[in-house]
Design a protein around this nucleic acid. Structure first.
Lengths: 125, 125, 125, 125
DNA sequence: GTGGTCTAGACCACA
DNA sequence: GTGGTCTAGACCACC
C-alpha cells in the first residue's frame, strides 16, 4: 500500500480500486476486517478523510460494510463479491479487446489467439 | 511520436515498439519509407544515434530494410510482416493472460468471458 | 413524564395534552385515579400550581372529575371519553392533511395512499 | 433557508430534506438550477463541504444532476421526480399511521376519519 | 464563475 | 478504540 498515486486520478478512487482488487483476489477474505480509517491513512500517507471517502464509496457498491465502533468489513454476501468479480473481469476484457482492436486485430484473431495460447501452454507444461 | 518515454526501459527499444506497432497497424504501409534518422530524432526529441540503433534492431528482425542512399523501408515480404503481427498478437495475449491470472481468474473464465463479451457486443450493435 | 417541555407553549396545556393522550391511549383506565397534584408536580418537575391548572382545564372538558379529599379521576362516562377520542383523532388527521396539502399532495393522493399503505402492510404481514 | 438545524441529525441530511421538499413542492422547477455550493453555504451558514455532500447525496438519488462549471440542476426526468414524490408521500403516511396506531386508533378509524374529514371540508366549502 | 478533491484538525456517538 | 460529521482553507479542472 506504499505505492505512489497517479496524480491525475482522485486518490480515493485509486484506493477503492486497490482495495477492491485485493478483496477479489482473495487477499482479504470474506467477512474480514479492513484496516481502520486511521491505519490505512497512515499506511497510504493520505488524509483520513480521503480513506473515509474510499470506504464510503466501497460501501455504496456493497462490497464492504461498516459496523459502528468496530470497523469496516468485507461483505459476507457471496453474491455481491461474485458480481464484483464478474464486473472486474468484464472491464479487463473490455480493455483488452479495445487495445487489440486498436492494433488492428480481428475478433477471430483475439479468440483463436487466446485459445491457442492457453492450449499451447498446456502442452508445454 | 511526441509521447514521453518510460525512463526505466531503453529508449531505442521503446522506439522499436512504437514503429513496429505503426507498421502492423498499417499506418506505415508495406514497402513504404520510414522517416529519416534525423527527422525521427528531431520528432521524437532523441539523439540520432538512438534512432539509428532502433532502426538497426528493426532491420535485424527483418521488418525493415535499409537501402543505401535512399532510406529505411518497411519490408516487402508479407511473410515477415505476418510473423511480426503474430508475435505482437501473442505478446499482447500473453500480457492479458498473466494479468488475468494475477487477478485470480481461471482460463475458462478468460475464454468464456471474451467469447461472451464479443457476442454480447454483436447483439447490441 | 420526564420529557422536556416546549418553551413556546404554556406548560399547563402541554400537561393537559399528555394526560389526555395517556387516558385515550388507555394507559390510565376509565374511573382510574390520576397522580396527585404534588406527585405529578415533582414527577414533571413543574410548579404544583401548574398541575392544578392543568387538572382544572381537564375537568372543564369533562374528561376528569375531582373528588374532594380523594383525588382526580378519569370520568366514568364513556360518551365523554368517546368524544375526546374523536376530537383527538380529528385533530391529528387535520394536522396530517394540512401537512400533506403543504407538500402539494391532493386529497385523492392522501386517501389512496393511506388505503394502499394499509393494504400493502396487510399483505406483507 | 435561514432556519436553524437540529443538532442531533447531520446537517447535510437536513439540507437534503429541505431541498428535496422544495423540489417536490415545485418551488424549484424541473431542470432548474439550484444555488451554487458556495451560495447555499453562505445562505445556510454552513461549510461548503457540507453543502457539497448534500448535493452529492441528492445526485446519487437521481433527483439532481451536476454539470461541470455550470452548476447543479433538478433532473429533467419526470419519472425520477415522480418516484421521489411517491416515496415522500409514503414516508409521511407511514409516520401518520405509526403515530395513530401509537395513540390506539384502528386502521378503520384512520381511513374513515380521513375520508370524513375531507368530505366534511368539501361540504363546508 | 462552477463543482471536485484534499488536507489538517476538531468534536461526536457508539461499543 | 471505531467510524461520522463538520470546519477552514487550499488547489485543481472545466467552461
Amino acid at each position: 500500500m506504499a505505492q505512489p498515486f497517479n496524480p491525475s486520478v482522485p486518490i480515493y478512487l485509486q484506493l477503492c480500486e486497490r482495495i477492491k482488487n485485493r478483496i477479489i483476489r482473495g487477499e482479504i477474505g470474506i467477512g474480514e476486517r479492513l484496516p481502520s480509517v486511521r491505519e490505512l491513512a497512515i499506511d497510504a500517507a493520505v488524509n483520513p478523510n480521503t480513506v473515509q471517502r474510499a470506504y464510503r464509496e466501497l460501501e455504496e457498491t456493497g462490497i464492504v460494510e461498516k459496523k459502528r465502533g468496530q470497523g469496516t468489513f468485507v461483505t459476507e454476501k457471496p453474491a455481491v463479491l461474485q458480481r464484483m468479480r464478474e464486473e472486474l473481469k468484464t472491464s479487463h476484457i473490455k480493455l483488452f479487446v479495445s487495445e487489440m482492436r486498436e492494433m488492428g486485430y480481428s475478433e477471430r484473431e483475439m479468440l483463436d489467439g487466446l485459445k491457442d495460447f492457453l492450449t499451447d501452454k498446456e502442452e508445454k507444461e
